[in-house]
Design a protein around this nucleic acid. Structure first.
Lengths: 190, 190
DNA sequence: GTCTATAGCTTGATAGAC
DNA sequence: GTCTATCAAGCTATAGAC
């Protein structure tokens, strides 16, 4: 019975993620996080040195997954096949457990977040992933489409409103659309 | 010589838009706006009663344009042709003068903005526009594509980084991609 | 490991002189 | 039309008792 401790640290992480995803980083105060857990601000500071440290830990899993894909892609020949496989792997990564909330935060809260150290770091690592998608000599439209392909996967991970489908259908459709945007879909007209 | 007054009110509007687009609504303080203009916060309050009133005026032009398109679409038969024309008109609207910054703000700053009265209003009116795009009985993938079509137009209006093209090329490409996503592009395989 | 108390700062907004 | 001065409220973060 060592790992069963209610573990306030993990609870803080969890509640923080919920609130950040819901209302953004800036608008979520430590008081609010503490209150929802029935503890005080000072108690939160015992577990995390700063607010920024909390947000930093939230992205660890996702980011190491991103790095893994980037590394893999770097060892391949650039081309449509690699692009497609990167999108597939990224899609799988996004299907992970609590990833939806992280992505929602990432997708909506860019502004409040980007001047944090963690924000700059993330931007770099996501940029690296985006660059592995590029196929040399693509048109402007194709570059835009790759951008949209990644956004499609993000929307597939969390977007509820305006889309009439179950989460699974939504995710599946997002991969389909992303691959089509990358010009590697199964949609080569019959 | 009645309309040449340096017009602090318009200057405040202009600076506020720049700062909101750059760093979001919440992170931009009235002190910052005032400082950049070489006046004080109190002077700003002479021209606008609240911070929210400033942001409200920024969207007026764009919103009336959106309403116009929505109204037009409501008088048409729903279908691919209407969808395509809505996208084209929305694309033209976005090409307007200072619209790029407004769209950047709109696209990136959702979180900080959505609990304002102006935010709720905007959401409704943009939702109405989005609904005119829908074609009855579309698949989940097609619904997602329409969503992406609007995002494509937004990106075309402002996205600089990661896309290697002039603003005009970028805008043109965004319309092309949007129409293709709506299934009405010229890309019906040769 | 959690608490109370508080320091130190920034914010949006107001009152009233000029 | 712009100013100085001030307000209450909120925030992050720290110190020190229990």
């Amino acid at each position: 019975m060592d790992e069963r401790r209610t573990d306030t640290r993990a609870q803080i992480r969890q509640v923080a993620l919920e609130l950040f995803a819901e209302q953004g980083y800036d608008k979520t105060s430590l008081r609010e996080i503490a209150e929802r857990l029935g503890i005080t601000k000072a108690a939160v500071y015992y577990h995390y040195k700063t607010k920024e440290e909390i947000v930093g830990t939230l992205f660890d899993d996702l980011l190491s997954g991103v790095d893994e894909i980037t590394e893999w892609a770097g060892a391949q020949e650039p081309g449509r096949a690699t692009t497609a496989e990167v999108l597939r792997r990224y899609h799988a990564l996004l299907a992970g457990d609590s990833t939806a909330q992280v992505i929602r935060f990432l997708q909506e809260g860019q502004t409040s977040f980007k001047d944090l150290a963690a924000g700059a770091d993330m931007k770099k690592r996501f940029g690296a992933l985006a660059r592995t998608l590029a196929v040399p000599g693509s048109s402007t439209a194709d570059q835009l489409k790759l951008r949209l392909a990644m956004i499609a996967l993000h929307l597939g991970a969390f977007l509820e409103e305006g889309i009439d489908a179950t989460p699974d259908e939504r995710r599946a459709a997002s991969l389909e659309v992303a691959l089509e945007l990358a010009g590697t879909g199964s949609a080569q007209r019959a």
